[in-house]
Nucleic acid binder design. Structure first.
Length: 716
DNA sequence: GTTAGGG
DNA sequence: CCCTAAC
């Protein structure tokens, strides 16, 4: 049945940058995390440090550079470091792409204070991998908090109802104080770590985090274990067997208190032919090479203020005190998540330059503002004038003064994971397109925004923020947004041009599948194990949901419903979501998946030609009914278009033709028929009355000779 | 809903 | 194939 082998790619998620290009440029890991977390250093210190590192890497950095260890610096240097410096601003956004070991590392960009801190070590967190588990994340920042607390839970391999949702990180306060406690170990430790080692360290740190910081996770609502969950009980040494989503997934959440990305990591370790490594786990499938990433982990970040960090979240486990470094660590990890994804994408699909938008996804990372209030300026500058930035900043500034306005900043959203199946024979270009389409489709209509307040979903869209309590400052910390599958839209989108479920063998072209629907996902994807989020889709369907609001619409809707004009939220969230797919998405807000391309076979061409010869051009509906009535995927528009291309093809030299060659005989007939019917059309315009005989004559004549002359003579 | 034509 | 104007 399957003519071609197909490669299935799973994408855990793409992160949609909250900010456009500006974002992608600068990214760097934050050295000071630990200290920062401990409140030993200020935001400015961090900024300065980062700046220093950059400069150092570049070559000369007089003032602020001694902060990072040589190794890091070198790494920084090696990896094209981008930095964005906005005039006069202290904020610095840096992005580095670590080429070596890229897979494992990435840097989180953040704003760094200007002060240098020698003590600070710029170790990067070893475990990037964890990010892979985050299905989706978005970050929201509220303006008024000077301190930010990030709490996120990592759900690894969660199968809960919430899986489908995209957690987002909410940050309060202008500055991200993300620091990692244990994760950032002394360089010596981190250096030279193997993947496994890295994973290990990561785990450890994570585990600690988990223990200490039971933050509310949306998942918890579902009655899931509050603690960080790792599907990987076995831990480090993972073998390919673990890669099997089925085995690793569902199980032991309870037992596991450590969140680990190992699954993904290890999966990469699994020998798989596919270029796509980490993100996907090889799934045993009938003869198909499937790489999938099944773990759809999600994490949720909450950024309560340090002081009154009362997570009123449904999760009882929440410890007020957890804010410390652990939280910071979490946050960092989450941010790192982005780069990871990006890498994944790049590596796997090798989508790069042309990947409109996708590669753009970036963490909106460092957009954090400096503590002092000029943040707004910085922000706007950094983001290259993204409209939202300035307004946002302003809003943030005025946060205190204007009680009626709630200001939020969503740093980024993640797109839910994608599953893609594509023939081995497909070109890279087609893969790129497929991925793009998948992403576009998801962004376009497959998602909607959910609002979480203290871990609870706010389902009543009609409530005002004030009523809900979102407007209250202290509530900000517990405010979260999530991207969730939008059932109403996803379903239709899932089957581009046909039913993916059937996996049309005849289609040489890539199919993109978006397992947003439980049933579909299971069937199409062939999950041995239930997709974590799949089963739970039902949960995402919020009672009051309207037909099919786009994500942006949703956010707008939510925020605007309030008469009080909640300015910031809408703008921000919209922007964030729109960033990547903007060009496409904007055009058609509904974002309907483009139908898969299905080249006409010679037989189809034959049928088409014959029908047109008989019926003539201009009666495409009849042609459809006559010759393609059974081909549901061929619309009369398709036939018309095909005829158009056939005519064109017939007129060009054979060398210029592409695709499956059409027999010259058919092309001749195309030209003949086209000429004839064109003439008929012209005549008709002249004389409305056209002898029926002509048609008959034509038809009888054409059979024998395909020369236009005959037709002409006959007609004449 | 169909056509026709540009993209 | 998509999108749309025009019918």
């Amino acid at each position: 049945m399957v003519l071609q082998k197909r490669l299935d790619y799973g994408f855990n998620g793409y992160q949609v940058p909250a900010t456009p290009r500006a974002t992608r440029s600068a990214r760097k890991r934050v050295p000071f995390r630990k200290r920062f977390e401990d409140n030993q250093i200020s935001a400015f210190d961090l900024l300065a440090t980062v700046a220093g590192n950059l400069l150092l890497g570049k070559e000369s950095t007089p003032t602020s550079s001694n902060t990072s260890s040589g190794e890091d610096q070198s790494a920084v240097v090696k990896n094209a470091v981008k930095e964005e410096r906005r005039d006069g601003d202290q904020s610095l956004k840096v992005e580095t792409c670590n080429q070596d070991r890229t897979d494992r590392k990435f840097f989180v960009s953040e704003l760094v204070p200007q002060t240098n801190d020698p003590n600070y070590s710029s170790k990067e967190s070893p475990s990037l991998l964890n990010d892979a588990h985050f299905g989706f994340a978005s970050v929201i920042t509220t303006s008024d908090c000077s301190e930010r607390y990030d709490a996120q839970k990592l759900m690894n391999g969660k199968t809960e109802s919430e899986m489908g949702s995209l957690p987002c990180k909410v940050e309060t306060g202008p500055f991200v104080c993300g620091t990692t406690g244990d994760c950032f170990k002394p360089e010596s430790q981190n250096k030279g770590l193997t993947y496994e080692e890295l994973d290990r360290t990561d785990k450890i740190s994570i585990g600690e985090v988990a223990d200490t910081c039971p933050l509310e996770d949306p998942v918890l609502l579902d009655g899931k274990p509050p603690a960080l969950v790792s599907s990987d009980s076995s831990g480090k040494a993972r073998s390919c067997r673990d890669c099997n989503p089925c085995s690793s997934f569902p199980a032991k959440q309870d037992d596991v208190n450590v969140v680990s990305r190992d699954d993904d990591e290890n999966s990469s370790g699994c020998t798989h032919p596919s270029p796509i490594k980490k993100p996907f786990r090889p799934t045993p499938r009938i003869g198909d090479r499937r790489i999938r990433k099944i773990l759809a982990s999600k994490y949720w970040k909450v950024a309560p203020r340090l002081k009154d960090v009362t997570f009123s979240n449904s999760d009882e486990n929440v410890k007020p005190a957890c804010c410390g470094r652990n939280s910071a660590y979490k946050r960092i990890r989450s941010e790192r998540n982005y780069p990871f994804k990006k890498r994944k994408f790049l590596h796997c699909s090798s989508v790069s330059s042309s990947d409109g938008g996708i590669s753009n996804e970036g963490i909106s990372d460092s957009s954090e503002k400096s503590i002092n209030g000029n943040a707004s300026g910085v922000y706007s500058k950094m983001h290259g004038g993204a409209g939202e930035s300035s307004s946002l900043a302003d809003q943030r500034k005025s946060f205190h003064s204007m009680d009626s306005h709630v200001k939020l900043r969503i740093k980024s959203f993640r797109v839910p994971e994608l599953f893609i199946e594509i023939p081995e024979s497909a070109t890279v270009g087609s893969l790129k397109r497929t991925v793009m389409e998948a992403v576009t489709a998801i962004l376009g209509g497959g998602l909607r925004v959910g609002v979480l307040l203290q871990g609870k979903k706010v389902r009543d869209d009609n409530k005002t923020l004030l009523q809900t309590g979102i407007s209250r400052d202290n509530q900000m910390d517990a405010l979260g947004f999530s991207l969730e599958p939008n059932p109403s839209q996803t379903s239709p989108l899932l089957c581009p041009g046909g039913s993916p479920l059937t996996l049309p063998c005849d289609s040489p072209l890539p199919l993109a599948r978006y397992p947003t629907t439980p049933g579909l996902a299971n069937q199409v994807v062939c999950d041995p194990s239930p997709e974590p989020h799949m089963p739970n889709l039902g949960n995402f369907v919020e009672s009051d949901h309207d037909s099919a609001p786009s994500p942006t619409d949703m956010s707008l809707e939510k925020s605007t419903t309030d008469s009080k004009a909640l300015v910031a939220v809408p703008a921000i969230s919209v922007e964030a979501l729109a960033v990547v797919p903007a060009h496409r998405k904007s055009k058609r807000s509904e974002v309907v998946q483009r139908r898969i391309r299905r080249p006409f076979s010679v037989a189809e061409v034959e049928a088409l030609v014959q029908a047109v010869e008989k019926l003539g051009t201009g009666r495409w509906r009849d042609v459809k009914l006559r010759a393609f009535d059974n081909a549901k995927h061929r619309t009369y528009v398709d036939l018309k278009d095909k005829w158009k291309t056939l005519v064109h093809t017939a007129r060009i030299s054979p060398q210029q033709r592409r695709g499956e060659p059409v027999p010259q005989e058919l092309l001749d007939r195309v030209l003949t028929a086209h000429a004839y019917w064109s003439q008929q059309q012209a005549k008709q315009q002249l004389k409305p009355q056209q002898p029926e005989t002509c048609l008959l004559l034509y038809n009888s004549t054409m059979r024998g000779s395909s020369t236009c002359d005959v037709v002409e003579k006959t007609l004449g």
